[in-house]
């Protein structure tokens, strides 16, 4: 394994979805939390307005970023976002979002997205950490809390030779540190681009800290971040993005992408 950087406190976010207002707030919040390094797990564009603004922020602040399915699509000008939806309504909305994002992303940013790595490895204290977008084996794999058993997490950790997996892609944050294996587990850092389908307009990212405790060597804090969602909604309207997207930003409830939710996650939502 190549040399990897070692940290004791990191911030990790994903699913920016062109929400440059939330991204600015997360950058400030992470600085206030004393994280040594911030990482982005991909899906920079989509859903929101002015995709270049998020790409510029990430590059300006030299955030270590990996490639999500959206970045692969935009970077390589593919036909669609490869989001993995099955519902025709979801696919129709996804296409509107993708066409807007592709046509409003500067070629320089597209070239940058095209060359982003798909994985990153680092060490957090004594633990090996692997960063990926959906899963380490498939960029658009959805790993939800209610459909990811402990035994499957153990299998992924073993197959990919790591202690911790840090992922996004679902848009919902959750984590599970395996009780029988201190410091091993999976953290879905959630998304900062849109709320977590809970009626709250805030978004989420994660801070991981090496504690060194034998029984719990890593702590995971899901951080709730309020940002200027009303200004974002105004920009989305001005760009004529779908009212359904704006409604999600203003209410905290998802109005699209519902078909992909497993039973438990779907039951927690409004639609």
């Amino acid at each position: 394994m190549p040399d990897v950087s070692d940290y004791e406190r990191i911030g990790v976010f994903g699913g920016v979805y062109s929400n440059h207002h939330a991204l600015r707030t997360v950058l400030a919040d992470a600085a206030s939390q004393g994280v040594e390094k911030l990482f982005c797990l991909g899906d920079i564009g989509g859903f929101g307005p002015h995709p270049d603004r998020s790409a510029e922020l990430l590059r300006q602040h030299e955030i270590s970023t990996i490639q999500g399915n959206y970045d692969d699509s935009v970077g390589n000008a593919l036909d669609d976002c490869q989001c993995g939806y099955t519902d025709p309504r979801d696919n129709a909305f996804a296409q509107i979002s993708y066409d807007y994002t592709l046509s409003n992303t500067d070629p320089q940013h597209r070239a940058w997205m095209r060359d982003l790595p798909m994985h990153l490895r680092l060490r957090l204290g004594g633990q090996d950490v692997l960063l990926a977008h959906g899963s380490p084996r498939q960029v658009n794999e959805f790993l939800w809390e209610s459909t990811t058993p402990d035994s499957f997490i153990e299998r992924l950790l073993g197959e990919h030779q790591t202690d911790l997996l840090l992922l996004t892609h679902t848009g919902l944050h959750w984590n599970r540190l395996l009780p029988q294996a201190p410091g091993r587990g999976l953290v879905n850092v959630g998304a900062i681009g849109r709320p977590a389908n809970d009626g709250d307009t805030a978004v989420w990212y994660s801070v991981l800290t090496w504690t060194g405790d034998v029984g719990a060597p890593v702590s995971v804090e899901a951080r709730r971040v309020e940002y200027d969602h009303e200004t974002l909604a105004s920009e989305m309207r001005a760009e004529r993005l779908p009212d359904e997207f704006v409604e999600t930003i203003l209410t905290g409830w998802w109005t699209t992408c519902l078909e992909i939710l497993p039973a438990k996650e779907r039951a927690r939502g409004q639609l």
Partner: peptide, 8 residues
């Protein structure tokens, strides 16, 4: 299946 890391 559990021993093989089944998912669903």
């Amino acid at each position: 299946a559990r021993g093989l890391g089944v998912k669903e």
